[in-house]
Structure formats: structure tokens, C-alpha cells
Write a protein that binds this DNA or RNA. Structure first.
Length: 872
RNA sequence: GGGCGCAUAGCUCAGCGGUAGAGCGCUGCUCUUACAAAGCAGAUGUCGGCGGUUCGAAUCCGUCUGUGCCCACCA
């Protein structure tokens, strides 16, 4: 949009007949930012409203999932800003440890190098370079969407302040003995070469093979079944159920392990299910979490037979083989030794995969850092249980509780280079010192820092307060913590929401947010999952280019039923674009006809019924939209606005007002002011969802600075039920006669002489409008009524002089008549039912009575219409 | 193996105890002095199956079928 939109509304600005978002959006966004609309003031007296954005990965490009959540957050904050809150929506990015490291390693691989060729320092330097070069992309895309983020407060999980926060909480947790180091079986990715936490493992059903193997010699043999033959090299026991008669004689004895010269004990452990397989289990404590637990209970050795890449290290013929090669090689060797008693049989079982690279996870005994979660998780659960934090939709709370009530300790160390290095130092004599952010690391010979970095979710767990300056007591922290709403996908409740709850409650002794609004996933128009890895994925930028940001936003908002997945297709974005264009043209028309927002709104006594009707509906819509916003019902509020604006304001009010405008005079002046008011309020209501088109039109209409900082509409309380009923009557008459015209094959524009008898009805005042909408001309001298339509107590007589298809009309009316008679019979049946009258609430009975009356009136009306038809 | 959810118009979804709704699509007529990215009119559903509760059920209960998601130490 150019300079001409900035002039006052009285000069009827020239706007093109089509809305072209591309001309408007970029400059408007820049203007908003320059004027500081999105910059929060911690010293403000206004009540605070804060949202922190779920930080996208630095590696990320904007996809529809982001666009969706960002649209909702933007709508929430824009409305609150208009409502007079000191609104902060804080942007930032996540360093996304493993994801980013993988990305840069890929880039290195293309140059034929690995991270080890560079060394730790040079490698992380390279990642920072990468981040500076590509990392800002997604933030630019958020601007394109119109996201009203406070760029002066942009944060990054690896920036200095946030790193300080990480070190501080690590030290605090360590001192409180909530962080510890322990050797356990962890999930290990042999490709990423790092430990990953339980929730970073994706389980999927894989085809495997179950092999039955005979262990032992002579009378003392036992058959075990396994899908992981290669781990037999590390077996240190066979376990059976303590009460299993079949194996009672073996318990406590040692049997020979095939392919080795070792013997292993048979132990009794209740973990073994005697019903499963042979009821005997091989035990490999170093390579299976269950076996590790059994080993702990029975004091078994742990024998590691594989290295970090999944290559066999046990000396012998299999040494140096990859785990899967080893599997077939060992099966072959066992078969040769006559140890395979039942051949491999296909077996589908659940196998863990690295959520980053899909490599099969290898359980591995390893020394790692852990967060002890019991008290933290308890606090996180309690905060939701006693309703300090609300989850929307509420049924998500069950999932949340199931998780926090059954949480295992969290493995936080990662064998990566990109991330927050663990602030722990080891001395030459095995001393361990945890160093806080302001402390010097121990100096002297032999002190080394822990090589590992922290799980990326460790730092994002601090996001709601680290971004506000914690551990410093900053004005931002005082003003904006706890934040108000967290908008995020239900798929990261466990990764992120729970961690923020635990850390927020621990560090701040206060919840991190009051409400969690959980969203679903964005899907394509057939309900198929759409993600960046799927071929049906759409780049939202393409749609924004083609249809405008408002169209993409409105489509997403309109699909946002609480917690549910959002389907989106190009046709729907097009429809939203059409809506934006409709708003554009309706407002443009209104301005061309002098709609104004200047001067006081006339008193109801000065207003026509049409004006009172639309103002009544307007205020009801304000109330409804407010209630829906407070309940995060974006789909419903968008739909409500769509229908109010398009159907009621644009299709009926504007059309009904045309006669008044064109007639001129004081009535026209009043109506122009009302239309200005209605558009002013409607544009303000629409602004949080479709910011660009509303800003362009509102500033032009009102001549004021910006709708971004305009007041949010308040329900004045004005309602006029009588006017609403009156307009419903007008709509009925108009629709009825239009249908008649359409049925008769009259062209929409064809003028028809008519005599209207509206006396004694509320319609009398609307004759001019009705005539105009129905293209009815005054009846002349030679008027001859060929059709007479009694509707709503009035009569509309038309002179169609032979244009009528009498038979078609008779058919239609006969059909309507039988429908009305059926309705009457149904209502009578109900009202004659004693049980119904006795038990149904009064208002339902009244409704049925009303229905009966309507049906009877319809019968009279239609009968009259039938009688009025000329005979052929 | 446990838990949660969903099955409503061709498609995507609202409705969740009182005569079946929306958007898109579809049919017909129109460039009727803001908009054809539009206007007007219209058609379309035994609300997954079977039982039950109720005066009344798409809506509550049971059950079956189909489908999706989450959790779990399925050797």
C-alpha cells in the first residue's frame, strides 16, 4: 500500500478493486517494528501479558506447524495488547544440539571430513559460523507471517546469558544432590555416538528373527530364545522363574556357554515369564536394561562385547564384525555346533531407533550424568493437580499425570561437541568439582573438564525464565514471570513442557506459565500427516506469496479446534484469500459512500431498525468472540467472525443500507456513521487473526495511526431483540420472493412491477429496501397481479405477465405444503403425548408449540399461494 | 500388553439429550452501479453396526467393527 492510504477518510480514497497482499505486508510489518509496537516495557504500569515462543531449531525453516502455532500466539498477544496489557511475546532459537551437529557434520562429510579432523574447538567454531549464516532464516519467515515479536529481546539458548543460566541451575541441582553421575544401561546411538534419553528413542515394529539356542551340556542343558544372538558372547547367566519346576534342578548350577570356554550360572529371577518361549532367558547385563537389572540382583559380571559403534570387541572369530554381521555369523557358527534347536522364525517386535537418525539404538553400559527427577516431577504434577497450571484441552492432563507419576531419571549428558559443556572438572586424584558460572575452574596439573555437553532440552527447560534474565533478578523477570500462556504441540509435552515445569518450579519456586494451550499437528487436506520429511509437505512461504499471510493465518486459525490436528489445503487458503478480498471490497465500498468513524454514535432513538439490528448483532458478536478467545477456541471465533462479517454485515447490512445512502439526507448521515462504526469494530475484531488487511483498511477508514494499538472492542451491552426480529422478517420476505423469482426463471437483474401490501407489519418501514433488493418496480396503470405471495403477514403481488411457469410453481408449493402438514402432524403428536408434556421442560414444549403455529401459518400461506396461481 | 481418542453431506470438520450444521466442492441463473477471488437461488446425510436408558438419542450406557495416537523392561 502506498501513501494514499494515509489520508483522511472523507476524501474517498482510491483503492484498487482487488486486495493485493504483496504490496502491503512487508512495509506494514516494518512500520510496526519501527514504531516499537511489539517492544515491551518492563517498567509499564499496565498489567503484564507474556508468551515465550517455543524456540525453533536454528537448523529449521518455517513449516506449517510453526506457522500454525505462531498464528495462535500472535492472535493472543495482539488481542491482549489491544486490551491494554503490557504485552511481551519473546522470540528466540534453540541450539538443538544433536540436530545441528548432525547438520554440520553432513556438510563436513561432503568435503570428505569428519568432526575429528577439525577437533572440538574448530568444529564448534564451524557450527557457530553455520548458525550465523543460516540460522536467522526462520526468524525472517516469522516476520513474513506478521508475528508481533519483541525483537529487542531475541534470545538464543547458547548465548551468554542463557549459558550462565544453564551453569547456575546445574550447580544448584548438583549441590542439592539432584544431579549425579552413574554407570547404567543407557540408549546409545552407534551412529551419533552419543547417549540419548528414553524419549529420544522411537519404537517401531521391526521384522526380527527369534532363534532358540541350546546352552549347557548333557543333562544340564537349557534352551533359550533370543532375537539378539550377537549378545550371547556377553552372556553371564541364564535366568529362569524361581517356581518353574522344569528348571528347578538347574538353579545354582553352572552351564557351558556355547562358542566360548566360559560357564555361566543359572539364576532364579521373578522377572522371567515362564509362559514366554521356553521360560529361560539368556542374561547379558552389559547390553540389555532388563538383564542389567537381573545382574544387579544376582551380582553377575557385566561383560561388554561391543564398542560404541556397535562393533564386536570380544576376542575371537567375531571380533571386528558389525553387530548385524555378527548376528548372522554367530547363528551360522551355532548351527554348525548343533546349538540351534529351532530354526530362525520371523518375529515382529518393537525395536528402538534414534529419533534423530533412525539408527537402531544399542543399549549400552555407560557412565553418564543424570537428573534425579522424583521431587521435581512431583512438584510438576502437583502444580497441575491443584490447578495452578491449566492444560487445554483438559483431557491432556491425564497423559501428563501418567508421565510425571512414572518418570525415570533423566540422562542429561551427551557425547557431542555442540551444546553446553558440563561444568564439572576432574582432578588428578579423581576429585570432582562442579563449577558455577562465576567461579574459576580449578587450576593446576591434571584437572580436566568433562568432555560431554548437556541434552538440548536441559537449556530449553529454562526458557521461560532464562530468557527474562535469570539468574539475575531483572525487571523483565519481575514483570513477566510467570508467563501467561504456553502454546505448543502435544507431541512435546514430555520433552519440553514437563522439563519447564520442573525447572521453573525448582529455580523460581513458581510456575513457568498459567496455561498450556496444546495444539495438534498440521495435516494435508486429506488428513494425512504433513511434516518436513513427508513429500506432501507444503512450504508456507509459497502460499503466503500466492495468497498473502492473512490467508494462511486465517485458514490455520479456522482449523484450530482445541488439541485437534489441523488439516489445511490450498483450496482452503484460497477461500481465506477470498474472505480477505471481501473485507477489502466491502470496506472500500463503504468508504466510497462516506462511511465515517467521526463524531459520536447517534442515540438508539435516532436509529433505524436496520441500524439497531446490526449494532445489536455487533455487540453480541463482540461478547461471543471474547468468550471464545478466553477459551482458546480459535476455530469457532474465526468462524463466528467470518459469518458475522460476510453474511450479516456485508451481505445484509450493506445491501439494506444502500437505499438509505443513495436517498441522502439526515437518515443517510446516520447510517454512514453506523456503517463506519460497524466496520471499525469488525476490523478491530478481525485484526489479531488477519493483521495486514485490517491494518490497511482500518487506518484508511479511521485516519488513525494503527489498529495494532487501537482499543479492543468492548461489548456496550446494547441489544435490541425487537429490531433483530424485524430484520429477520425482512430477510424472510426477501429470501422467499427471491426464491420465487429464481424458480420462475427470472433473471436476477430483471425488473418486475409489483404492488406491496406491507401494512400492519413491521416491514412497512423497509419497503424501499425490499423493493431495491428484489428489483421490484412501482405498479403502473396497467398492473395486473399474476402472482401474489403472502409472506410474514404481508403480501407481495407481482405482475409477471406470462413469465410464470405455473406448473413448476404449483409443484414446488405442493411439496412445501406437504412438508408443512407433516410438521404439523409431528408437533400435534408430541403435544398429544402425556408423557412428553409431563417430563419435557417448559421451554421445549413452548418450542414445539411455536413449531405448530409456524406449520399452521405455513399451511395457510402456501394454500393461499396455490389458490393465487393462475389456472393454466 | 495397558491407556486415550475418533467414526456426522463428495472432502475436511463443528454439534454432544429436544425438528441434522459450516467451509470447500456440486447444480442453476447472473458481470443486478464494492467485490465473478463475486451475487442470488438450490440439491445432498437410515449422524459406523447392534442392543439398552429416556416422553424423546447423532448426542448418555453397553457391545461389535474400523481407525488414529500415547505409554510399556513383547527375552
Amino acid at each position: 500500500m502506498t501513501e494514499n492510504t494515509q489520508q483522511s477518510n472523507h476524501s474517498a480514497p482510491e483503492l484498487p478493486t482487488q486486495y493485493t497482499p504483496a504490496d502491503v505486508e512487508g512495509p506494514l510489518y516494518e512500520r510496526w517494528v519501527e514504531r516499537g509496537y511489539f517492544t515491551a516495557d518492563a517498567k509499564s504500569e499496565k498489567p503484564p501479558y507474556a508468551i515465550v515462543i517455543p524456540p525453533p531449531n536454528v537448523t529449521g525453516a518455517l513449516h506449517l506447524g510453526h506457522a500454525f502455532q505462531v498464528t495462535l500466539m500472535d492472535a493472543l498477544t495482539r488481542r491482549k495488547r489491544m486490551q491494554g496489557f503490557e504485552t511481551l511475546w519473546l522470540p528466540g532459537m534453540d541450539h538443538a544440539g544433536i540436530a545441528t551437529q548432525n547438520k554440520v557434520e553432513q556438510q563436513l562429510a561432503e568435503e570428505g571430513k569428519s568432526r575429528y579432523d577439525l577437533g572440538r574447538e574448530a568444529f564448534t567454531e564451524r557450527v557457530w559460523q553455520w548458525k550465523d549464516e543460516y540460522g536467522g532464516r526462520i526468524l525472517g519467515q516469522l516476520r513474513r507471517l506478521g508475528a508481533g515479536l519483541d525483537w529487542s529481546r531475541e534470545r538464543f539458548t547458547m548465548d551468554e546469558g542463557l549459558s550462565r543460566a544453564v551453569q547456575t541451575i546445574f550447580k544448584n541441582l548438583y549441590d542439592d544432590e539432584l544431579i549425579y553421575r552413574a554407570e547404567r544401561i543407557i540408549n546409545w546411538c552407534p551412529r551419533c555416538l552419543t547417549a540419548i534419553s528414553d524419549i529420544e528413542v522411537d519404537y517401531q515394529d521391526d521384522d526380527g528373527e527369534l532363534v532358540s539356542l541350546k546352552y549347557g551340556e548333557g543333562d544340564e542343558t537349557v534352551v533359550v530364545a533370543t532375537t539378539r544372538v550377537e549378545t550371547m558372547l556377553g552372556d553371564t547367566a541364564v535366568a529362569v522363574h524361581p517356581e518353574d519346576e522344569r528348571y528347578a534342578h538347574l538353579i545354582g548350577k553352572r552351564i557351558k556357554l556355547p562358542l566360548t570356554n566360559r560357564t555361566i550360572p543359572v539364576v532364579a529371577d521373578a522377572h522371567v515369564d515362564p509362559e514366554f518361549g521356553t521360560g529361560a532367558v539368556k542374561v547379558t547385563p552389559a547390553h540389555d536394561p532388563n538383564d542389567f537389572a537381573i545382574g544387579q540382583r544376582h551380582g553377575l559380571d557385566t561383560l561388554t562385547v561391543m564398542d560404541e559403534r556397535g562393533v564386536i570387541t570380544a576376542s575371537g572369530p567375531f571380533q571386528g564384525l558389525d553387530r548385524f554381521e555378527a548376528r548372522s555369523a554367530i547363528v551360522a557358527a551355532l548351527r554348525e555346533a548343533g546349538r540351534v534347536v529351532a530354526e530362525k522364525r520371523p518375529y515382529v517386535h518393537s525395536v528402538g531407533h534414534c529419533s534423530r537418525c533412525k539408527t537402531t539404538v544399542e543399549p549400552r553400559l555407560s557412565l553418564q550424568w543424570w537428573v534425579k527427577v522424583d521431587t521435581l516431577a512431583k512438584a510438576a504434577g502437583d502444580a497441575v493437580r491443584d490447578e495452578r497450571v491449566a492444560l487445554h484441552p483438559k483431557d491432556m492432563e491425564k497423559r501428563y499425570f501418567d508421565w510425571v507419576d512414572n518418570l525415570n531419571d533423566w540422562c542429561i549428558s551427551r557425547q557431542l561437541w555442540w551444546g553446553h559443556r558440563i561444568p564439572v572438572w576432574y582432578g588428578p586424584g579423581g576429585e570432582v568439582v562442579c563449577v558455577g558460572p562465576d567461579e574459576e575452574p580449578p587450576s593446576g596439573e591434571g584437572w580436566t573438564q568433562d568432555e560431554d555437553v548437556l541434552d538440548t532440552w536441559f537449556s530449553s527447560g529454562l526458557w521461560p525464565f532464562s530468557t527474562l534474565g535469570w539468574p539475575e533478578r531483572t525487571p523483565d523477570l519481575a514483570k513477566f514471570y510467570p508467563t501467561d500462556v504456553l502454546v505448543t504441540g502435544h507431541d512435546i509435552i514430555f520433552f519440553w513442557v514437563v522439563r519447564m515445569m520442573m525447572f521453573g518450579l525448582y529455580s523460581m519456586d513458581e510456575i513457568p506459565f498459567k496455561t498450556v494451550a496444546l495444539t495438534g499437528l498440521v495435516r494435508d487436506e486429506f488428513g494425512k500427516k504433513m511434516s518436513k520429511s513427508n513429500p506432501n509437505a507444503v512450504d508456507p512461504l509459497d502460499w503466503m506469496d500466492a495468497y498473502g499471510s492473512d490467508a494462511v493465518r486465517f485458514t490455520l486459525a479456522r482449523g484450530a479446534n482445541p488439541g485437534a490436528d489441523v488439516p489445511i489445503g490450498e483450496d482452503w487458503v484460497q477461500a481465506s484469500r477470498n474472505f480477505a478480498n471481501k473485507i477489502w471490497n466491502a470496506t472500500r465500498f463503504a468508504m466510497m459512500n462516506g462511511a465515517t468513524t467521526e463524531g459520536p454514535l447517534p442515540e438508539p432513538s435516532e436509529l433505524s431498525a436496520t441500524d439497531r439490528w446490526i449494532l445489536s448483532r455487533l455487540n453480541a458478536t463482540v461478547a461471543e468472540v471474547n468468550a471464545l478467545y478466553d477459551d482458546f477456541q480459535f476455530a469457532k471465533l474465526s468462524d463466528t467472525l467470518y459469518h458475522f462479517a460476510w453474511d450479516e454485515v456485508f451481505d445484509w447490512y450493506v445491501e439494506l443500507s444502500k437505499t438509505t445512502f443513495f436517498a441522502g439526507g439526515p437518515a443517510a448521515e446516520v447510517s454512514r456513521r453506523v456503517l463506519g462504526e460497524v466496520l471499525d469494530v469488525t476490523l478491530r475484531l478481525l485484526h489479531p487473526v488477519v493483521p495486514f488487511v485490517t491494518e490497511t483498511l482500518w487506518t484508511t477508514l479511521t485516519g488513525r495511526e494503527s489498529v495494532v494499538v487501537a482499543d479492543w472492542p468492548a461489548d456496550s451491552g446494547f441489544r435490541d431483540a425487537a429490531a433483530e426480529q424485524e430484520i429477520v422478517l425482512v430477510q424472510q420476505v426477501v429470501t422467499e420472493v427471491r426464491r420465487f423469482r429464481s424458480d420462475q426463471g427470472l433473471q436476477p437483474g430483471q425488473k418486475v412491477p409489483a404492488r406491496l401490501d406491507l401494512s400492519g407489519t413491521a416491514l412497512a418501514a423497509h419497503e424501499a429496501a425490499v423493493r431495491s433488493l428484489l428489483r421490484l418496480q412501482p405498479a403502473g396503470e396497467d398492473f395486473s397481479a399474476t402472482a401474489s405471495l403472502p409472506v410474514a403477514g404481508a403480501t407481495v403481488a407481482l405482475d409477471l405477465s406470462g413469465a410464470i411457469d405455473v406448473e413448476a410453481e404449483r409443484k414446488r408449493l405442493t411439496k412445501d405444503l406437504s412438508a408443512a402438514e407433516k410438521e404439523k402432524a409431528q408437533a400435534l403428536g408430541k403435544l398429544g403425548n402425556e408423557a412428553f408434556l409431563a417430563k419435557a421442560p417448559e421451554k421445549v414444549v413452548d418450542k414445539i408449540r411455536g413449531r405448530l403455529e409456524t406449520a399452521e401459518a405455513d399451511i395457510v400461506r402456501i394454500s393461499a399461494q396455490l389458490a393465487a396461481l393462475p389456472t393454466a
